[in-house]
Design a protein around this nucleic acid. Sequence first.
DNA 1: GTTAGCACTCGAAGTTAACGAGTGCTAAAT
DNA 2: ATTTAGCACTCGTTAACTTCGAGTGCTAAC
Lengths: 348, 348
Amino acid sequence: MINKMLTDRQLFLLQLLVNDYVVSAEPVGSRSIAKRDDVTFSPATIRNELADLEEMGYLEKTHLSSGRVPSEKGYRFYVDHLLAPVMLSDDEIENIRHAYQKKFSETEELIRATAKILSEFTNYTAIMLGPELLEMKLKHIQMVKLNQTQGVLIIVTDTGHVENRTVSLPQTIKAEDVEKIVNILNDKLNMVPLYQLSRRLNTEIASVMRDHVRDYQHVMSLLKDSLMIDDPEQIFFSGKNNMLAQPEFQNADKLLPLFNVLEGKEFVREIMNMSSSGLQIRIGSENKLNGIEDCSLVTTTYSIGGEHLGTVAVIGPKRMAYPRVVTLIDMVSKLLTEHLNKQEHSSQ
Amino acid sequence: MINKMLTDRQLFLLQLLVNDYVVSAEPVGSRSIAKRDDVTFSPATIRNELADLEEMGYLEKTHLSSGRVPSEKGYRFYVDHLLAPVMLSDDEIENIRHAYQKKFSETEELIRATAKILSEFTNYTAIMLGPELLEMKLKHIQMVKLNQTQGVLIIVTDTGHVENRTVSLPQTIKAEDVEKIVNILNDKLNMVPLYQLSRRLNTEIASVMRDHVRDYQHVMSLLKDSLMIDDPEQIFFSGKNNMLAQPEFQNADKLLPLFNVLEGKEFVREIMNMSSSGLQIRIGSENKLNGIEDCSLVTTTYSIGGEHLGTVAVIGPKRMAYPRVVTLIDMVSKLLTEHLNKQEHSSQ
DNA sequence: GTTAGCACTCGAAGTTAACGAGTGCTAAAT
DNA sequence: ATTTAGCACTCGTTAACTTCGAGTGCTAAC
């Protein structure tokens, strides 16, 4: 089934209609389009064109005599062929750049700040996925004794991420034993990916431990617990409340399922899967996940040190200001990448 | 103005009415009360009694011929004098205890889990405030070099909390210099409260640094940035979405201001201020904070090592299941305290 | 002191009518 | 061959009116 070519005027009208509907959230009629200064033809002509566009599946009516609303096919066409890059005002660009001037002492803080900026400037909800913890490599392990019975095990990765665990120390263990153990671990596990830690523990480490550490069985079981890294993702949400301002989510019946989906693991997995390469847009039911069929999802990626990947996402109603979101998400992901790499390479 | 003493029957009726309204969320009429098995008198009698209770300010009507609803004064009286401790089912107690069986590798995880349990069992929103970061004392500082230009500064407190900062290292600095600096810091700042760090840095440390470290000005300014601890609170929310299920918050107009308040700093400050000693309940407009005048807030405290204090809070509609919430928040805060202290003292 | 009976109130739910924004179609105008 | 004015028709929205019922207060009888 090959689509008939659309005329220039049809393209123009489709674009106008989507733009209008995106801000008004009300079905758009022929009269309101005709009122515009850049439209020279009459409502009747517009009605004819819109009827054609509807026949081709780009538009829908909410009832027999209502104005038109873009269909999912309409949004898809709009996004694929009519997405005019939007200009941000100098003011806005200045504001965004300004938000990145601030010193960020932790990578996490930077990512969190990015989510906030993105949600505030789009007025939708932003989601940031950090680099996968399990892919990170061990850079350093450190044990700090808090008191007779407790210590904190600190794990630093090559990306500067820090994990920590509280561990109960057997009273039999001595300070020099602890030091010895930590030295062994640092020696043997340097630059080992976190997901391999427990395996390595059982193979290489076990034998060394047996030779050098007394009560080694006990120590091994403690270490095994502590080096279990199970939390696979760092996730940051910002602007969930922006959904409350959207006319399509005014009542709790709509909101509850939406929020439940947003907080679920499947949603995060969905974002992870779709953002393999560059900018992607999922419109409405293109999202396979149940519960966000009235939403659109825009994602892109950012890189740390040119290697590890994270994801930036914006979710909002299907009736989304796509050009603006695309411009913003693009800008922000670039700024983030830039910032992370500056951190990585500069000395100031 | 001294309140007239309430008769036993009036107390009984007030209690029944609150209990009924809490579950139904609808004004309670005399007939529905009379239908109960434990009520032996007629609707007319009940009407007379309720009219008296209304006159005394414990009840209100939503309109002239509606059933009655508790007033804030009514809730207050109920909470102060009629709060019958509710029994949890064995099943529930078992479930809660079971949730605490799991091993928690970080204190944070334990507190987060407690919030979740509390929100799930109350069906309201739980808020946990961790111990004040600024009150914690420095136990250990560690610097891990990531590459030529970057390092991670790790700060461990006496409670086992870990803070970390990414710092850009000047290229002139050598590994042994870093070690020297860290040693000085550990030596001079051991057990200093975090809020004093920057002051101490300027006094004691500055002079020592000048004598032992080259390029000391530069190092000092880096340290100053890194030891600025500004985030004063650890806050954990759970079950915000439970608000969506409450009939009083069905539309976005009510939800948006509520959520905005919950996320604001004033709200946290409010909780901090009110929980100075034991269990406290704030009903409706007793909360001075604008935006939660239709909510009630129940708070209590927990202790770590008998010394540091944190706060457990539950917020829900004014029409809250007070007895259940009080029982649960009490139980959970005790379990949490117990768990934290077990961690502290046992060796297994 | 309690309660049956009754007139009265008022919100909720249902009905109807008027309104208006929108459409499709036809026929005239360009 | 397009474009457009004109017009009948559709249908959601709003407001006015009705009905219904759950609830009250009051009075008089128990």
